[in-house]
Each structure stands twice: as C-alpha cells, then as structure tokens.
Simulated scan of single mutants.
Amino acid sequence: MTQQFSSPPHLLMGADALEAAAERLPRLGTRALVVTDPGIVAAGIDRIVTDVLGAAIPFSTFADVVGNPDIDTVEAAARARETTGADVLIAIGGGSSIDVAKSVAVLGTNGGSITDYEGVDRFTARPLPVVVVPTTVGSGSEVTKGAVITNPETQVKMVIVSDLMFAEIAVLDPRVVAGLPGRIAATTGMDALTHAIEAYVAQGANPVTDAMCLGAIELIGEHLVAATQGDPDSLYGMLVASSMAGIGFHDAGLGAVHALANTLGAHFGVHHGTANALFLPYVIDFNLPAAPARFARIARALGEEVGGLSDDEAAARASVAVHRLAEQTGVPRTMSELGVPRDAIPRLAADALAQADLPGNPRPVTLEDLITLYERAA
C-alpha cells in the first residue's frame, strides 16, 4: 500500500519567531485580515502579535470567531475580508480561528459557500495565503491541510481538506502562550495528546508520522502537567508538541476519539479539546487489544517503566498513564459534567458512526461499541 506524507507549512519557532514572520509577510500580500476571537482580544494577546506583524503590513481585524465555528461565522469573516480588500489572512488563536481563516482563504479565490467544498480536494484555485499564530497548545490546525466547520442545520462538523490548504507560515512564539490559563492548557494539551496517540495507532500511520507522533508524546509527557501550572518553558514545549502531533495526524489519520468528540461538539457545542480529553482514556482501553506493541511504545514515551513486561502488559501501562494525566490536569471525566443528558447517547452514537475519522481507528467500531463508549463517559 502506498503511504504518504504531506509537507506542512514553514515553521518559525522560538523567541523571535514573530519578528521573523514580519520579515516575510510583505511577500505574501499587501493588506491583512486578522481573524481571532473575543477572548484573545480581551486578553490582549492579539496586540502581542499585531504590534509586530502590523508594522510590516496594514491590517483590519475580524474578532467574532466562536468555538466550534459554523457556516455563519465563516461567511461573516469572508464578508469582512471582501470589505477590507485583504489579500492575506492572519489567524491568531486556537483551532477555531485557524479553521475560519483557512476557510475564508478558500472562498477568497474559489467563491461560493464553504459547504461547496466539504470533502477532499473539492476546489482547484489556490487559497489566499494564511499566516497562523496558535495561542493554545492543542489543536495542531496551524500545520494541517484542512478545516472543520459546523453545519448547524445538519449538526455535522464538515471537513474541508486539500493539500492547497496548508498555511504559508506557522509561528510558534512562546510569548503568545506565556499566560495561557491552566484550564485551557489542560484541555488543549490533552487534545494534542489525543492527536498524537490516535495518529500513532491509526490505519494510515507510516514511519514519518510515527516519528512526529512519538516525539510529540514524549514532549507532552514531559511538559503537560507543568504547563497547566503556568511554567513558561513547558507551555512552549507543549506548543511545539502540538504542531508535531498535527503534522503526524494530517496524514496518518485519527480514530474513534474524534468520531465521538466531533459529534458531541456538533450537538452540544462542547469545546473540541475538552471532548477529546474526555473520551481519550476510554478509547485507549477499547483499542489496546488491536495494537499492543504500539501502545507499549506509547507507554515508554510517556515515561512508564515497562522493562521486562510483555507487550500486552506494557500497553496497559499506556492506559494507566493517560488516565493519570487526565486526573492530574483536571479535565472533565464525564459527559454529565458538561450538561449532556444520557438519553442523547443513541443519537450521538448513530451520528458518530458516520464520522470520517472513524475508519482510521485500529480496531473496528460498531454502533454498539460507540454506545458503550459514550456510556462509559456518561
């Protein structure tokens, strides 16, 4: 079987990453639209970025991105771009802002509605250039070749994917995550761990994605707990790990955690990282029999002592490690904590069965399995 690896955007990393991006920005366009959310603006994080990048190119700001962004958000941002005449997008934020910016870039050269491009390779014109400055430590969207946008009519998260959707530049600057609240570091950090683990055991894994995912898992095991406590070096370590996990999963694929989480987010508006963190430990338990050798390597990457253990015994240590991280970071462990009623499970499971990420799971998943997984997390 032919395997693949798609080259991610140009990564600029470290203390002067924003300044390095500013030098390159005028080559991409003449006016920028900054795409961000109200929380980023309220915290002043957008100014950390625009004080540097704004000196290189004039810009306007669209700051109305919502969590689990929907079609209306994309259309509003697209109108803002048309009004201002921006020919380059700068996304500042988590996965929501990044996905909206990438979607607007597609519409900027292809026209129509974002619903026209659901699926893989549904457009032909190269999108407008996008510069991405992630401000959380989990989505990985800065290095992936797609976007996820909610269709509120169908309660489905649409996936738009193309090799043309990579950002031009992804900026990993420690300044923008230095003050990340512990709660957000926890949920987005567990999101990154989900990406790395799911991709490492996914059907589409290959040696290149394996290297990225295992490296990310090691960094997350080293830095996640300290990052939730505000340690700046660990927050930067998690920022890099998130991008590494993103590079891994966009070719290797994902699995049942994302099928469960995307469906929960579409129906109840649950933050994507929170949903992934909720389901990850239970799906690992489900998947252990399908890939014991790989889960054994995950356990070692997370720092578990597995010398002398069989693959099955070592794999079980991966489950122990992830359950412990979930407890240490304080992420939600049940859907009831998120206000999700148990009687929603049959509908959630039916919709999760149709999720595009599900076939990548290392163990086949039935409707009954999905119901059981939702019930474990209820």
Rank of each mutant, 00 (worst) to 15 (best):
M1L: 08
S7I: 14
P8Q: 06
H10E: 14
A15W: 00
D16M: 00
A17W: 02
L18C: 04
A20L: 09
T30F: 06
T30M: 11
D37F: 08
R47M: 04
D64Q: 15
N68Y: 07
P69A: 04
T73V: 15
E82C: 09
V88Y: 00
G94Q: 06
V100K: 11
V100Q: 13
A101N: 06
T109C: 04
S113W: 00
I114E: 04
Y117P: 15
E118F: 04
L128T: 03
V130T: 15
V132K: 00
G140R: 15
A147C: 12
A147Q: 06
E153C: 03
Q155S: 12
D163H: 13
V177P: 02
T188L: 01
L193V: 07
H195K: 05
H195M: 07
A199R: 13
G221M: 10
H223C: 15
G230H: 01
P232M: 03
L239I: 01
L254T: 02
G255Y: 12
G265H: 10
F268M: 11
F279D: 08
A299G: 11
A316K: 12
A326C: 15
V331E: 10
V331W: 09
D343M: 04
A344C: 14
I345K: 14
A352I: 02
L358I: 07
P362V: 07
A378I: 00
